[in-house]
Design a protein around this nucleic acid. Structure first.
Lengths: 125, 125
DNA sequence: CCGTATCCGCGAGGATACTG
DNA sequence: CAGTATCCTCGCGGATACGG
């Protein structure tokens, strides 16, 4: 029973573009952050260490276009903007956060694997 | 109660490197494929449409170094090589597959969101 | 505060060819 | 079949500056 005809393994399938967008360091971190609630642009920028102004803006725009994130501007002065998850975006955050958290939870095991691997290389393994 | 001192939001934290590696289109597809069982190099190459020989090789090497994937060479002629998930790798595939599958399951909603967004741009929204 | 435009360096990654 | 090396391009993404 086919639920959909999409195939992310295919070069031509539009799902590949979507995957490219969400299989991205910055997008993952943004989506994970928004899980806790709406955030302002500057708040996201402050929390996500290392992302540039421009790339944060670009990434948010793409996520908004894909319907994962909503953007709300309040007519204050200067303008206040809030980004939040849409229901569609929320449906992805479980998986996204799991990936992000995995890195933290398994860092020790990864580091050990790297040491083993490198040692094997040194000894001509 | 802190379970670990790692913070993926920090630029300097080693988890950021790990995230960078797994938050990657090709790595996600490889890990998802290996979920079904061991695969040979050429099989992976055939299934993952659009990946180059070189990048597949590089990505596998990194995943192997991080302890997510194991590499087994059989002394046939020509040599046969099998890639498989390690237990560590298996612990990540749930989240990884969820992300990959999400793209397929929600493609229609994403496409609709894109149409809406683009229409709003055209009408000077 | 938020966003976009411009410039530009750098490295990911594709094509190709060669080794084992 | 599996893997590496070389070359080269192309666009991501950082810095900066300016507009709203």
């Amino acid at each position: 029973m086919m639920k959909h005809a999409y195939d992310v393994y295919s070069d031509r399938c539009p799902t590949r573009q979507v995957l490219t967008r969400i299989a991205d360091k910055w997008a993952l971190l943004i989506l994970d952050l928004l899980r806790a609630g709406p955030h302002r642009f500057s708040a996201l920028h402050r929390r996500i260490h290392g992302i540039s102004h421009k790339v944060l803006s670009q990434t948010l725009k793409k996520l908004e276009r894909d319907g994962l994130v909503s953007r709300t501007a309040f007519p204050t002065v200067p303008v206040t903007v809030e980004y939040a998850l849409t229901p569609l975006g929320t449906s992805l955050t479980g998986a996204v956060s799991a990936v992000a958290h995995w890195a933290e939870s398994n860092m020790d095991a990864v580091a050990e694997a790297q040491r083993d691997y490198d040692a094997r290389q040194d000894s001509g393994g």
